[in-house]
Structures are given as structure tokens and as C-alpha cells.
Deep mutational scan, measured.
Amino acid sequence: MDVFMKGLSKAKEGVVAAAEKTKQGVAEAAGKTKEGVLYVGSKTKEGVVHGVATVAEKTKEQVTNVGGAVVTGVTAVAQKTVEGAGSIAAATGFVKKDQLGKNEEGAPQEGILEDMPVDPDNEAYEMPSEEGYQDYEPEA
């Protein structure tokens, strides 16, 4: 019985440690998101679009440190934060509304985080759909 109880105690310690790591990862992701939003706020009209992409990228980098179902929630929060940063930029006159959601080359930025393969159960990952990809044929 002692062996059984000791095993359960060790398992509990492992769960607590994993929860603490997840909590730490979420806190880091939130900190990076805040950094990115402050970065966007300090940019001029020309830099705002690039700044919004930076927020998304920093958040995406930190999301990889967070495991399990938390990833889905962090990704949703990050996307809403990026959308909010863009709205703030438009409201303050840093950028025109028609410039939001495009990178410096004018290509749409939507789907940055949505296409990231995420499995809350950590069982399997699927690649994003290939609808947006084109076949590449090298020139002879």
C-alpha cells in the first residue's frame, strides 16, 4: 500500500510541476504579447503594419512553449490582441483601416495563427491545408 501511495504522490508532483510550467509559459506569452502591443503603439504610420505582424510573430513563438489545451486559448487571445492593436492603430490615425491585415508588401496577414497546427491532446499534428499553395516548377 505504501508503494501505491508513494507512486500516487510522485504522479501528483509531476502534474503540479507540469501545471506550473504551463502557467509560466502562458505568463511569458502574455508578456511578449504586451511587449508587441507597446511596440505597435510606438510606431509611426509606416511601421504600424509591420508592428502588428511582430506582435503576432512574438506571440506565436511563445505559444510553442505552452502545451496542451492552453495553446488553443493563448492563440485565440493573441489573435484578438493583434486585431485590437490594429483597431487602436486605425482609431489613433497611425494607419488607414484599409491597410490593416496586410503586410508591407500588401499581402493579407489573416491566418497567421489560424494555420498553425495545434492539437490540445498532444496526440497528432496535421499540416495546414494546401489550398493556398501553388506547385513550383523550376525553369529549365
Rank of each mutant, 00 (worst) to 15 (best):
Gly36Val: 07
Val118Arg: 03
Val37His: 00
Thr75Trp: 06
Ala29His: 07
Val16Gln: 10
Val63Thr: 04
Gly25Trp: 14
Lys34Leu: 14
Ala78Arg: 03
Gln109Asn: 15
Ala29Pro: 00
Asn103Trp: 09
Gly86Trp: 14
Val55Ile: 10
Asn65Met: 13
Pro108Tyr: 09
Gly111Met: 02
Glu139Asp: 10
Glu61Gln: 10
Ala78Ile: 04
Lys6Glu: 15
Gly67Cys: 12
Thr33Tyr: 15
Gly86Glu: 12
Glu131Ala: 03
Gly86Tyr: 10
Ala53Met: 12
Gln62Ser: 07
Gly101Asp: 08
Glu20Pro: 00
Glu131Trp: 11
Glu131Met: 06
Pro138Phe: 09
Ala19Phe: 09
Leu100Tyr: 13
Glu123Asn: 03
Ala27Met: 08
Lys23Phe: 15
Leu38Ser: 02
Gly41Ile: 14
Thr92His: 12
Gln109Ser: 10
Ile88Glu: 04
Thr92Cys: 10
Asn103Gln: 13
Gly47Ala: 13
Lys6Cys: 14
Val82Ala: 05
Gly41Cys: 13
Lys6Asn: 04
Ser87Ile: 13
Gln62Phe: 14
Val66Tyr: 09
Val95Gly: 04
Glu139Ser: 04
Pro117Trp: 08
Val70Ala: 05
Val15Trp: 14
Ala91Thr: 08
Gly68Ser: 12
Ala17Gln: 03
Glu131His: 07
Gln134Arg: 09
Val55Tyr: 14
Gly68Phe: 15
Gly51Met: 14
Ala90Ser: 06
Ala69Lys: 04
Ala91Glu: 06
Ala29Asp: 00
Glu46Ser: 03
Val40Pro: 00
Ser87Asn: 15
Val16Pro: 00
Pro128Val: 11
Thr59Ser: 06
Val77Glu: 01
Pro138Val: 05
Asp2Ala: 00
Ala76Asp: 03
Tyr125Gly: 11
Glu137Leu: 03
Glu20Cys: 07
Ser9Met: 08
Gly25Thr: 06
Lys32Ala: 12
Val37Arg: 00
Asp98Leu: 12
Lys80Tyr: 06
Asp98Gln: 01
Gly41Glu: 01
Thr59Cys: 04
Val52Phe: 02
Val74Arg: 00
Phe4Glu: 00
Lys96Glu: 12
Ala140Gly: 09
Val49Pro: 02
Val26Phe: 04
Asn122Asp: 12
Val70Arg: 01
Pro128Trp: 13
Leu113Asp: 13
Thr59Lys: 01
Tyr136Thr: 10
Gly86Asn: 12
Gln99Val: 12
Lys45Gln: 03
Phe94Pro: 04
Gly25Glu: 03
Ala91Lys: 10
Val26Pro: 00
Glu13Leu: 12
Val52Trp: 13
Pro120Ile: 01
Gly84Lys: 10
Val37Met: 08
Val55Pro: 00
Lys58Phe: 09
Leu38Glu: 02
Lys10Arg: 14
Val3Met: 07
Asp135Glu: 14
Lys6Ser: 09
Val77Asn: 02
Val55Asn: 00
Gly106Ile: 09
His50Thr: 06
Glu110Met: 03
Tyr39Ala: 09
Val48Lys: 00
Lys96Thr: 12
Gly25Asn: 08
Gln24Asp: 07
Tyr133Leu: 07
Val77Cys: 04
Glu131Val: 11
Ala19Leu: 11
Glu35Trp: 09
Gly86Gln: 10
Glu105Asp: 14
Thr44Met: 14
Glu13Met: 05
Gly68Lys: 08
Glu20Met: 11
Glu105Cys: 01
Ala69Ile: 05
Phe4Ser: 00
Lys34Tyr: 13
Lys21Tyr: 11
Asp119Tyr: 03
Ala90Gln: 14
Ala107Arg: 08
Thr22Phe: 15
Val15Ser: 00
Pro138Lys: 02
Gly25Leu: 13
Asp2Gly: 15
Lys32Arg: 05
Glu110Lys: 07
Ala19Val: 15
Met1Cys: 15
Asn65Tyr: 09
Pro128Leu: 08
Glu139Phe: 09
Gly132Tyr: 11
Val26Asp: 00
Val82Arg: 12
Ala76Leu: 15
Gly36Gln: 13
Lys34His: 04
Glu114Pro: 10
Lys34Gln: 12
Thr59Ile: 14
Gly132His: 03
Leu38Ile: 02
Asn65Gln: 09
Phe94Val: 06
Lys12Pro: 00
Asp98Gly: 04
Asp121Tyr: 11
Glu110Leu: 09
Tyr125Asn: 15
Ile88His: 03
Gly14Thr: 11
Asp135Pro: 08
Thr33Asn: 00
Ala53Thr: 04
Val77Leu: 11
Ala89Pro: 01
Asn122Tyr: 05
Pro120Gly: 10
Gln79Ser: 04
Ala69Asn: 04
Asp121Arg: 01
Val40Leu: 09
Val16Lys: 03
Lys34Thr: 13
Gly86Thr: 11
Ser87Pro: 02
Val55Leu: 12
Leu100Ser: 11
Lys97Pro: 10
Ser129Tyr: 11
Glu126Ala: 06
Lys10Tyr: 15
Val52Pro: 01
Lys60Gly: 13
Asn122Ile: 10
Ala76Lys: 04
Pro120Leu: 03
Asp115Thr: 05
Asp115His: 09
Ser9Glu: 13
Met116Leu: 10
Gln79Pro: 03
Lys10Pro: 00
Val118Asn: 14
Thr54Gln: 07
Ala78Thr: 08
Gly67Thr: 12
Pro120Ser: 08
Thr81Gln: 02
Val118Gln: 02
Phe94Asp: 06
Lys60Met: 14
Val63Ala: 14
Lys21Val: 13
Thr72Phe: 13
Gly68Gln: 01
His50Asn: 13
Gly101Tyr: 14
Gln24Phe: 09
Gln99Asn: 08
Ala85Met: 08
Ala78Pro: 01
Gly7Trp: 05
Gly36Asp: 04
Ala11Ser: 00
Ala30Val: 11
Val52Ile: 12
Glu130Asp: 07
Ala17His: 11
His50Tyr: 11
Asp135Ala: 06
Leu100Ile: 12
Val16Ala: 11
Phe94His: 03
Met116Tyr: 07
Thr92Glu: 08
Ala76Thr: 08
Gln62Trp: 13
Glu20Arg: 11
Gly41Leu: 15
Lys60Asn: 08
Val77His: 00
Ala90His: 10
Val55Phe: 04
Ala78Trp: 15
Val66Trp: 14
Ser129Trp: 01
Val95Cys: 03
Gly36Glu: 03
Thr59Phe: 15
Glu137Trp: 13
Ile112Gly: 06
Thr75Arg: 12
Ala76Pro: 03
Glu61Leu: 12
Ala30Arg: 02
Ala107Trp: 08
Thr54Asn: 12
Gln134Thr: 02
Ile112Gln: 04
Gly101Lys: 09
Glu13Thr: 02
Ala78Ser: 03
Val77Trp: 09
Ile112Trp: 13
Lys10Asp: 02
Val40Ser: 01
Val52Lys: 01
Glu46Ala: 14
Glu139Asn: 08
Glu131Ile: 04
Glu114Trp: 14
Gly14Asn: 02
Val26Glu: 00
Gly86Ile: 15
Asp98Lys: 10
Glu46Trp: 05
Pro138Gly: 09
Thr81Trp: 15
Gln109Pro: 01
Ala107Asp: 14
Val49Thr: 04
Met116Glu: 08
Ala140Thr: 06
Gly67His: 12
Gly31Gln: 15
Glu110Thr: 05
Thr92Val: 09
Glu13His: 04
Asp121Leu: 06
Tyr136Pro: 08
Met5Cys: 13
Lys58Ala: 04
Glu20His: 10
Ala56Lys: 06
Lys21Gly: 15
Ala90Cys: 15
Gly93Ile: 05
Gly36Arg: 04
Glu35Ser: 04
Gln134Val: 05
Ala29Met: 07
Ala140Tyr: 12
Tyr133Gly: 10
Met127Phe: 13
Lys34Val: 12
Glu123Cys: 14
Asp135Ile: 06
Val74Ala: 06
Gly14His: 06
Thr33Leu: 14
Leu113His: 12
Ala69Ser: 03
Val63His: 01
Val66His: 02
Gly41Asn: 04
Asn103Ile: 04
Val95Tyr: 07
Tyr39Arg: 06
Pro128Lys: 11
Val66Phe: 12
Glu110Ala: 14
Ala78Asn: 02
Lys80Arg: 10
Glu83Pro: 03
Pro120Met: 02
Val82Gly: 04
Val82Glu: 02
Thr22Ala: 11
Lys23Asn: 00
Leu8Met: 03
Gly7Gln: 05
Pro128Tyr: 04
Glu126Thr: 09
Gly67Asp: 01
Thr59Gln: 01
Glu110Asp: 04
Lys23Gly: 09
Lys10His: 02
Gly14Lys: 11
Val118Met: 03
Lys23Met: 09
Lys97Glu: 08
Ala85Pro: 01
Val49Asn: 05
Asp98Met: 05
Gly67Leu: 14
Ala89Leu: 14
Thr44Ala: 07
Val48Phe: 03
Val71Ser: 05
Lys58Ile: 13
Ala17Asn: 05
Lys6Ala: 15
